[in-house]
Design a protein around this nucleic acid. Structure first.
Lengths: 206, 206
DNA sequence: AAAAACTAATTAAACGTTTGTTTAATATTA
DNA sequence: TAATATTAAACAAACGTTTAATTAGTTTTT
């Protein structure tokens, strides 16, 4: 991928994250990326194909690390879950804008083909976590829980605090200008909560 | 509010839920609601004002019930949480399309005034739950937990399974055509998970 | 090494649609 | 008759996309 294409994609992620795909115009994007309008269609073919290129370009951004954790035999089952939580939080904090775009587009039921490719990216991650949980349940190191729902809880909690900024700032008594992504303390707080939650939910009572 | 206005709002919620606000056109809406394009601007003034009217019209759709639960002295603290969970699930299942529109628009950082009014609707609900949790912590019937994060977990989990249909169907091994809203068993499963989760997390270990 | 030929990158302008909105005329109701 | 509701048509602006001309960069030929 050429420098210019990546440059356009960078700005596209930012714009789409702010205004959504439908809300963003090629001319907006061209102005931001400081390129001619025609360049976008010249490089990507169309607005929709630009989106697909964007997704393809930034696709595999978590899988590998999760796989490593899941297969690390030095870790206990609950240890794996805790590592996964930290990995997920750190990755989503870093790629927050791209994650926002993915999440938004996944929620709109239109554009079937695109939704499919988004799910292709995110689903394998969920599956890794699901397997860890179900293995733990089988072994007896975890209680009998609804693994799919546990994943929804982990990912849903992170999404909730990361994606609805205004709502969360109100809940956390922060000013409107507060941006959680910049605050390491906030990441720690989120991580601590999820770990505590998972320990209580997953571990058998002694 | 006249019959015709409500009729238009009904279809607007449906359309916005499917295509998003930016992705929906006045002409689309007019065709769906079977009214002349000009009627929408005649009644609401503009597309944006239509959205505001929609929000205003469907605003108070949960508050009252939550308040009752929070003040019901016959219920234990964990009993209150369980009731709140069921109420929330049932309300979101019923008003699912409106909820989807609200959530989508809340995530976009644009349209500041509109975001503000959305938060005005949803925040009080969160506050009621937060108060119940913090009261429980003070009394000692709950462990010392991060109340704000607990709310993010409850609402985030529900949103996760309700709003990203395709992803969740995959996780739950359902076909693409499966619609969780129509399935009472699914609501039960979600409710059971959240209750079990909250009991483990909130109740002191015996 | 210089000139020519060719490919790729870049541009401003225009294309045909679609957008939200307004108008001005007509129908309906009170 | 007067106010309200409804319509088809037109409006200007914005949209994604295409065109056709120009510049820059590379390769080939002399």
């Amino acid at each position: 991928m050429t420098d210019k294409k990546t440059h356009i994609i960078d700005h596209a992620i930012e714009l789409f994250a702010e205004k959504g795909f439908e809300g963003s115009s090629i001319r907006d994007l061209a102005a931001r990326a400081d390129v001619n309008v025609a360049m976008i269609n010249y490089y990507f073919g169309s607005k929709e194909k630009l989106f697909e290129s964007m997704v393809a370009d930034r696709a595999s951004y978590t899988r590998g690390v999760l796989d490593e954790i899941a297969n690390n035999s030095a870790l206990s089952d609950i240890g794996k879950i805790e590592r996964i939580i930290d990995t997920y939080i750190s990755k989503l904090f870093t790629n927050r804008k791209f994650h926002r775009v993915l999440h938004q587009e996944m929620m709109l039921s239109q554009r079937e083909t695109l939704q499919h490719s988004i799910v292709e990216i995110l689903y394998p991650n969920s599956l890794i976590i699901k397997n860890v949980i179900e293995a733990g349940v089988k072994k007896g190191s975890f209680r009998k829980v609804d693994a799919s729902m546990v994943i929804a809880t982990i990912i849903g909690t992170i999404n909730q605090v990361l994606l609805s900024k205004k709502m969360c700032n109100k809940l956390l008594n922060k000013e409107d200008s507060y941006i959680p992504y910049d605050d390491a303390k906030f990441a720690k707080r989120l991580s601590d909560h999820l770990k505590q939650l998972m320990q209580a939910h997953l571990l058998p009572q002694s």
